[in-house]
Amino acid sequence: MDFLIYGLGRWLHIGSGVLWIGLLWYFNLVQVPGLKAAGADGTAPGITKHIAPRALEFFRWSALSTWLLGAMILGDKLPAALLFQDKAYYPIGIGAWLGTIMFLNVWGLIWPNQKKILNLYQYAANPVSDAEKNVARRTAFLASRVNSMLSIPMLFFMVASGGIFRRAFFP
């Protein structure tokens, strides 16, 4: 059982997290500036129709699976970590809080606004106005940038919370 949770679980948690944060950085480093350039020469629809929706599906589901697998690894220690009940849980507690805020940002702000921007799901038949899209675009952009910013300390505390790294950073 320990092997499943701590071995397989951690492996899948990290793999899932790589997919999630990899796509987050792809959006911020590649797609946003790429769309700006594509908008100038009229090629943006190729990205918004075929690339962005696929990337967003992997993005939101990997965010969920990363969070669930992280919660599974912490198991009954999850409340203690989130409530900082023991010094040993301080680093992973910070990492878990940052990951939780980022996960809520994905499902509460980025995904609902991206659906409006890209005319997905309920907006496919009923697109919102251009004014509403502009508001959604700015909200999704800032939420995505906040997540990019938070990913830096989140990764540090995830790495610094385990094994020899914890002893190195928090002796």
Partner: peptide
């Protein structure tokens, strides 16, 4: 004042500063 999150470098610098602040808080309390 411009929002630092509008640029990639502003975002990275904010992330590094936040890491430093959180690390020092946890290190102090640890």
């Amino acid at each position: 004042m411009k929002n630092p999150l509008d640029s990639i470098w502003g975002t990275v610098i904010c992330g590094l500063l936040l890491t430093s602040v959180l690390y020092n808080i946890v290190h102090y309390l640890y």
